[in-house]
Computed example of a mutant assay.
Amino acid sequence: MNGITYVRGDATAPHAKGVKIIAHVCNDLGGWGRGFVLAVSRRWPEPEAAFRRWHRERARNDFGLGAAQFVKVEPYVWVANLVGQRGIRTARSTGAPVRYEAIDAALGLLAEEAVALGASVHMPRIGCGLAGGSWGRVEPLIVRRLVERGIPVTVYDFGA
């Protein structure tokens, strides 16, 4: 057992008491419009608006691979935009856009925020959808960065 709780359900509707952070992986092009972000945007407009502003103003902030942005969407719910994907997959792409080292760095920032807020972390299988990553490579990063620090983590597989 690795300390991660796996459930079927919607990661945008976490079942936990207290402060919750919903984490997902974003690309470094500022694109938002496919994959899990659509579910996030259906629930709250703030994470998309904040992400687009963060990207647009990147010359004056920390936007880039390995960065993390935390957006409060409800009194006890935050969304973490983790930049862990180089570009996007296109018809002419070769290789997956996932960047494991960037996901690892962003998870480190997520851990700091979760500890500061006393929050649990909720996510889909980050980096394994449109980013094309392998859960076998992402899961150990989550265990090392979050679980080993005592942060409760729930991973949601969408479905009934």
Rank of each mutant, 00 (worst) to 15 (best):
A23D: 04
N2C: 05
C128W: 06
G35F: 09
L141V: 03
E101W: 04
G18E: 08
V79S: 09
L146Q: 08
E113I: 00
G133E: 05
G18N: 12
M1W: 04
A119D: 08
I103Y: 06
V71P: 07
A39S: 15
Q69R: 11
G31A: 10
V115D: 10
G84R: 04
I88P: 00
K72L: 07
M1Q: 03
A106V: 08
G30W: 11
L82N: 13
A96E: 15
M123V: 03
V143Y: 10
G129Y: 02
E46W: 01
T5K: 15
W44Y: 14
A119T: 07
R34A: 15
H15V: 02
P97H: 12
A131S: 14
V143E: 14
K20H: 03
L141N: 11
G33H: 14
D157C: 03
R43W: 02
Y156G: 09
G84E: 10
F70S: 11
T12I: 10
P47Q: 02
G9P: 03
L110E: 13
V71S: 10
V19H: 00
G127H: 02
G31N: 06
C26R: 02
V40L: 14
A13N: 14
A68Q: 08
P75C: 08
H15N: 11
A119S: 05
C26Q: 04
G150P: 12
A160W: 06
S41N: 09
A16Y: 01
R99H: 10
K72Y: 05
F63L: 10
H122C: 02
S93D: 09
A105C: 08
G66N: 04
E101Y: 01
V73C: 06
E101K: 12
R34L: 12
R99M: 05
Y76V: 03
R99N: 08
V115E: 15
